[in-house]
């Protein structure tokens, strides 16, 4: 199949996270009327709209590898249906990061800590232990750490909220 044809029907990857303020996956799918207001207001163009071909079609998502969410919290204010509810940064539930110790530079006795330095909720979401290695605490899953991680494949990855038990 030609690549443009594949792109026409792909539109969704399971690592996509929802924009901040989504109460639950079920509630967002029920209330979202696919108007695109959150995408228009996003200053970083982090929010994209899921493409044709799945039940997620038309709903907003954030792909942390392409552009993470910086928790500016503008999108919940414009959402007309309350799919994204206004919450404070600390109470956002987009997902949860976890560190892959086998490839993380800090855990392999190197110095990196980029994820700690760039985290919007520094010391609350990611903290450093006594050996200066990143540890996840109250992570909201914005994905900035994944975005800045220098290793390939990424040593810190986000699990979307709907996949957390």
């Amino acid at each position: 199949m030609p690549s443009w044809f594949e792109r026409l029907f792909k539109g969704w990857s399971d690592t996509n996270i929802r924009p901040p303020g989504a109460r639950s996956e079920k509630h967002l799918l029920a209330t979202c009327i696919k108007c695109g207001r959150c995408m228009m207001v996003c200053p970083y163009q982090s929010i994209k709209i899921a493409d044709w071909g799945s039940k997620y079609y038309g709903t907003p998502y954030v792909d942390p590898d392409a552009m993470p969410c910086y928790l500016c919290m503008k999108c919940p204010e414009v959402c007309p249906t309350g799919s994204l509810s206004t919450v404070s940064k600390e109470n956002v539930q987009m997902g949860r990061a976890h560190v892959v110790h086998d490839t993380c530079l800090s855990w392999q006795d190197d110095l990196c800590n980029l994820c700690y330095k760039r985290c919007p909720l520094q010391d609350k979401a990611i903290d450093l232990n006594d050996d200066l290695q990143p540890v996840i605490k109250n992570c909201v899953g914005c994905g900035v750490c994944t975005y800045v991680c220098p290793t390939q494949p990424k040593s810190i990855v986000i699990t979307p909220q709907r996949n957390l038990s």
Binding site: I33, M40, I49, G58
Partner: peptide, 30 residues
């Protein structure tokens, strides 16, 4: 529990295509 009519609504589709075309430079399959 899903807004079914929004999936096929051509008005919404035209709006989303214009939105994605101008902001993300892509055209969706819908």
């Amino acid at each position: 529990g899903i807004p079914v009519i929004c999936y096929i609504c051509p008005i919404g589709i035209i709006c989303r295509e214009l939105l994605q075309g101008t902001m993300l430079y892509k055209i969706g399959g819908e």
